[in-house]
């Protein structure tokens, strides 16, 4: 029976951001989750066209925004991301 009993566990990988002083030069860290087939392609095209966007936006490519899970957004906030942008 023990082999039937499946268990899932999440090992502790989190490095939760601690509260700290906000410097004057603060810029929000934004994480963009982009769908491979549309938003990511658009970002790629923007790059090809030499258009620039602020360096505090980091893009994560998803096979589809349907892949995005609650926990991906929450982990981003946990680690100190200030805003999450989902595009697809």
């Amino acid at each position: 029976m023990a082999d039937v009993a499946e268990a899932t566990e999440q090992t502790r990988v989190s490095t939760t951001e601690k509260p700290h002083e906000i410097p004057d030069s603060w810029q929000p860290n934004v994480l963009a989750f982009a769908c491979h087939y549309c938003a990511f392609a658009a970002a790629d095209l923007a790059g090809v066209m030499r258009l620039s966007y602020p360096p505090n936006v980091k893009i994560i490519r998803l096979p589809c925004t349907g892949k995005l899970d609650h926990i991906h957004v929450l982990r981003a906030f946990e680690r100190g991301i200030d805003g999450v942008f989902v595009a697809g």
């Binding site: 999440q10 989190s14 939760t16 951001e17 601690k18 509260p19 926990i71 929450l74 946990e78």
Partner: peptide, 10 residues
């Protein structure tokens, strides 16, 4: 779990 971690950090 994630919410509790964030609350604890806050």
């Amino acid at each position: 779990t994630s919410l509790l971690r964030m609350k604890a950090a806050q």
